[in-house]
Design a protein around this nucleic acid. Structure first.
Lengths: 366, 366
DNA sequence: ATTGACAACGCAAACGTTTTCGTGTTGAAA
DNA sequence: TTTCAACACGAAAACGTTTGCGTTGTCAAT
């Protein structure tokens, strides 16, 4: 086997494993073949001045020929960092969360990190298990959004323990203020106000709210924004117009229940001329039910949903929504985490970054 | 600090690091504190018979108190396996692919594996880079679906090299027959036939096809199924009725182009009474355009799409689709990979598993 | 001939495990 | 008292790196 390095030098290496190389080649292999020490090989590959030009060329040629790549695991052990982060999300078949992952992954690729994804499925136990299996050296830090069950039980010991062991966490969207970590959230409260203000200025007098139970932080904030915006516009909130859906039974598989609840809401309050829903699915379903009840959108009823997703863009009529900028949230979260990981002196000051929502006007509003 | 192990024994450990423990505790720490060797600690924790009951109890109590967990990286290095797999997909904000991930993750959790996700963004270069950064010891094997650009360029060297280095690959959905690895695919050809047969038996005489350019393997197969099914039903395929969309410009951001193409198709062929589209978006857009042109669905025009997603379920009318069972594909792919990884003697016989599509009838067909 | 400097390289430790093998201590059998 | 097994534990190698430092060898200067 002949390998030409330059026009000047020609190296001749005999294949050191007659069969096709299966296992990856290591420094040790190279050292043995070239009859030098492992240290010499390592230094030669890193272009150390300690090594002669001749040796460097020979080693580098050999390494290239056999496609040597340093073993990441060994490097991780030595450097005590893995260049890998863990991302725990409640659900992946979901426009917003997959957008966040896309954002995280983009920055990770850019900065040389890998991303391990764990799904909690909205379950406390799975969240804990996922975190425990990753926190034992596999990763350098976490990015996560808290599961509904965890929010409901209000048991946050696993977050605190992880942080106490020196592993940083960045939380996004569903966060807990008390936990000492960086956070990226959306302006749930202000976003809601934008939506309500829009509806009011479009002439709506009776605006209904379709939201979740209060233990989901984002649901609570969006509800609060609705209340405040109404007040600010001199409208007295009417409890009749607020539908709090129990999302223990995830809507996707219990559409009928959702539809019935909304139908009741609209039937019982014939004067409704605006609906604000805290997510895309609730908004879509509202439009569907309303049309069934003979209402024209947006003439009789205007609808706005939180979370801009694929449904909003492709429904008919298309849906006016508040965009959460999921990808941007992911990017920001990743940057916060990487910056913290690469900053030697640990900084006890944690940031909370607020990403502004944007009202995207489509056909469901005038 | 007092720790009660049983009613009989009481151990008293002094905190060996007066500050709150930051870095994770290792065998070495425990050994030093308890004044035994590292080997003894290791054996005691694994309940070796070599160690006396007394010592075992003491070590285990201490380990539990300080929440000792073995370092995964060190284990990976020693065992030469990481219990982690890499998953490379073209896109994550996508119903089908995120379903696959969900399936993979479910099995991975069950069998004690972690999942690193890499996105190719349909780009050849990113696919290669992602694979190279993972193939250096970070993972034990790959699950992947080939990017469009790679399919277009037909450059598969990175797959072959990875396999030659002894790292198994499982491909799903977009696969290449020539590559020696396990595969999980959907019955694209048969699925198409189901759809066409349905339309024909529902009375359609002029069925249009909206598909992609041929280099995407699944697109080609679905097109082929359309052709064959027509022939089998005694209908001569009509080139006029076939629209091959250039998906270099991803539809999501070029909806206008897509809509215009479809509008032309329908205008030029007034007799069209059925449309079969190779994905959900094409089908949805067809319905939208058709309605704009005054066609009633399903009375005047029936529509079936490949890939059952969130759009199909929530559009109005709801869309009849072929379900790809993405989650099941992910589960199967993961099982194939884990089985191969855990099988000592390497098996040169590769399987191709075909997941059957299922026709889900909704409102867009009679 | 003796020094000293410098170039070129190897040794060994370290990261945190597991595991094989060796060793010292006990107690009982001879 | 000697011998030997059983017991309980420790030393060291291995996984694949990087790096500080010690060790050679060569050659010019004294």
């Amino acid at each position: 086997m002949v390998f030409r390095k330059t026009a000047i030098k020609t190296y001749e290496f005999h294949i050191f494993d007659s069969k096709i190389m299966k296992r990856k080649v290591t420094l040790k292999h190279i050292a043995k073949e070239l009859d030098v020490s492992i240290s010499t090989v390592s230094k030669a590959l890193r272009n150390s001045v300690e090594i002669s030009e001749d040796t460097k060329e020979k080693v580098q040629a050999f390494a290239k020929l056999y496609n040597y790549k340093p073993n990441n695991i060994a490097l991780s052990l030595k450097n005590r960092k893995t260049k890998t982060i863990g991302v725990i999300i409640p659900e992946i078949v979901h426009y917003f969360f997959s957008m966040v992952i896309r954002g995280i992954e983009r920055i990770a690729l850019e900065r040389g990190y890998n991303v391990i994804v764990g799904l909690s499925n909205e379950s406390f136990d799975k969240e804990v298990i996922n975190m425990e299996t990753l926190a034992n050296g596999s990763i350098d830090g976490f990015i996560l959004s808290i599961s509904k069950e965890t929010l409901f039980q209000q048991d946050y010991h696993h977050f605190n323990e992880t942080i106490n062991q020196g592993m940083p966490i960045v939380m996004f969207d569903r966060v807990i203020n008390e936990i000492p970590c960086d956070k990226v959230i959306v302006d749930d409260l202000d976003g809601s106000k934008k939506a309500i203000n829009k509806l009011v200025s479009n002439g709506c007098k009776n605006i209904a709210l379709i939201t979740t139970k209060d233990y989901v932080s984002v649901g609570r904030l969006r509800t609060q924004g609705y209340m405040e915006a109404l007040s600010e516009n001199g409208i007295a909130p009417n409890a009749e117009l607020i539908l709090k859906v129990d999302d223990k039974l995830e809507a996707e598989n219990h559409l009928d229940v959702l539809e019935q609840s909304i139908e009741q809401l609209i039937r019982n309050n014939a004067t409704i001329d605006g609906i604000y829903a805290v997510n895309e699915l609730y908004a879509m379903t509202s439009m569907k039910v309303a049309r069934k009840l003979g209402k024209n959108i947006p003439e009789d009823l205007q609808v706005i949903g939180f979370t801009d997703g694929v449904l909003s863009r492709h429904s008919s009529p298309t849906l006016t929504t508040l965009s959460q900028h999921g990808q941007q949230m992911g990017e920001k979260a990743a940057e916060l985490l990487f910056d913290r990981l690469e900053n030697e002196e640990e900084n006890e000051i944690y940031q909370t970054i607020v990403i502004n929502t944007e009202l995207i006007e489509r056909e469901s509003t005038k």
